[in-house]
Computed example of a mutant assay.
Amino acid sequence: MGLFARTVFWQRIGAAGIALMLLAAAMAFATSIGETSIPIKTVIDALANHVFGTTHPVDAIDAGIIWNYRLSRAVVAASCGAGLAVSGVVLQALLRNSLADPYLLGISAGASTGAVSVVILGLGGGMLSLSMGAFAGALVAFVFVSLLALQAGRCPGAIILAGIAGSQMFNALTSFIVTKSANAEQARGIMFWLLGSLSGVRWPDAALAVPVIGAGLLVCLCYARALDAFTFGRESAASLGIPVRRVHVLLIGTSALMTAVMVSIVGSIGFVGLVIPHAARFFVGVRHGLLLPLAALIGALFLVGADVVSRIILPGQVVPIGVVTALVGAPAFALILCHRRVLR
């Protein structure tokens, strides 16, 4: 290994270490903030007791809040933000459209319909889990949107227009299922969940989210060069020897799976997969070997921060996290659009 290669290697190791430290600090901060504030030192002591078996004096109630409620919530929030951001990067590269993301392409809406069908209608006769139902719904929605876009031919923005139509249709199906078959208590819970909610997440949810997002990010990183090629179009990617159809199916399936798992746990959250990839490109450009991990980090930090805001913005109430991401994401996306226009 040459001197330059070694320098680049250690630079990347250092950057990864700094990124992990930032994420750990954000999660520790999120664990300490809430209706009952807990000092950071108490958080660190409680975590050390659980992980390393130390015997730091920590109040039993505080320890329970930290470990059983807030830390699992922060882990799921970080996983969700990372997964949605990576999905946004992949879809924007594959479809060559800066507006592509799981929310606009109907994947989130389809996953919501699939999850609600399993919970309320009992789809699958008890053989389908909530995540599998959401995954099936996400795939059905994307196939529907893709077929609709193909019918539109070479119409500019066809995939986005088809995604809006698909989102509206699957959102309407979800509302119809809830209105027709859910009782009042189920309807209230599902409508709050559909706006994005981390209130009920626990360690079993984290045990599902972390491996899925980690594996999804690893798969996408393995195809980072292929995503670079797709930036110049399918024909360019094919000319470089990339199996276009197989890579398309694999990466879109990976994005759909990550989105479906997140929707099944926290509901439908918009703007993360749309705005975060643009923010990451501002720092590292379009090379996906750097773009994917940075987008995952920024997405994780953003959603952890949004969860903190959702818990403290209204005293005594928890605002749906999807509301917070939309309030932040919409103005941020408007600024990105204006900035690009100025650069032109």
Results as ranks from 00 to 15, higher is better:
304 V>E: 01
239 S>R: 11
144 F>S: 12
229 A>Y: 11
208 L>Q: 08
189 G>Q: 14
107 I>C: 12
179 T>Y: 13
311 R>S: 10
45 D>F: 11
265 I>V: 14
219 V>W: 05
137 G>H: 09
293 P>G: 12
150 L>A: 15
312 I>Y: 07
133 G>T: 06
63 A>Y: 04
243 P>W: 02
276 I>L: 07
305 G>K: 00
112 S>R: 00
78 A>M: 03
181 S>Y: 14
32 S>C: 15
129 S>A: 10
269 I>A: 13
81 G>R: 01
176 F>Q: 12
251 L>F: 04
216 G>N: 00
224 A>C: 08
326 A>T: 06
57 P>G: 12
189 G>T: 07
66 I>G: 11
147 L>C: 09
306 A>L: 06
22 L>F: 00
270 G>F: 04
18 I>C: 01
105 L>Q: 07
118 V>W: 07
100 A>I: 03
238 A>T: 02
123 L>E: 09
253 G>P: 08
179 T>A: 15
68 N>V: 05
334 A>T: 05
148 L>W: 09
240 L>R: 08
334 A>H: 05
337 L>T: 08
284 V>D: 08
193 W>V: 02
88 G>R: 02
99 L>K: 03
105 L>W: 04
177 I>S: 13
275 V>T: 14
80 C>A: 14
273 G>C: 06
177 I>Q: 13
226 A>N: 03
22 L>V: 00
70 R>M: 10
34 G>P: 09
253 G>L: 03
338 C>G: 09
265 I>T: 02
228 D>N: 15
276 I>H: 03
93 A>F: 05
182 A>E: 12
100 A>D: 07
237 A>S: 13
67 W>G: 06
311 R>D: 12
28 A>G: 05
100 A>K: 01
56 H>T: 02
90 V>A: 11
33 I>A: 06
42 T>G: 14
35 E>L: 09
35 E>M: 10
134 A>H: 10
231 T>E: 11
170 F>C: 11
86 V>I: 07
225 R>A: 15
125 G>P: 10
207 A>P: 00
157 G>K: 04
216 G>R: 02
282 F>K: 06
173 L>Q: 06
188 R>T: 12
94 L>Q: 07
170 F>W: 03
148 L>C: 05
30 A>C: 05
250 L>V: 14
200 G>N: 09
246 R>C: 04
130 L>D: 10
272 V>G: 04
309 V>M: 15
283 F>D: 09
16 A>K: 02
125 G>W: 04
339 H>S: 12
262 M>T: 08
32 S>G: 15
173 L>W: 11
146 S>Q: 15
280 A>I: 00
8 V>N: 12
131 S>H: 06
183 N>E: 13
49 N>A: 13
273 G>M: 02
175 S>F: 03
32 S>R: 06
17 G>A: 13
136 A>K: 02
337 L>S: 09
109 A>I: 01
192 F>C: 06
50 H>F: 07
94 L>S: 06
76 V>H: 04
200 G>Q: 13
127 M>L: 14
298 I>V: 15
207 A>M: 07
247 V>A: 11
202 R>N: 06
276 I>K: 01
326 A>V: 01
308 V>N: 03
86 V>C: 13
51 V>M: 13
40 I>R: 08
210 V>F: 03
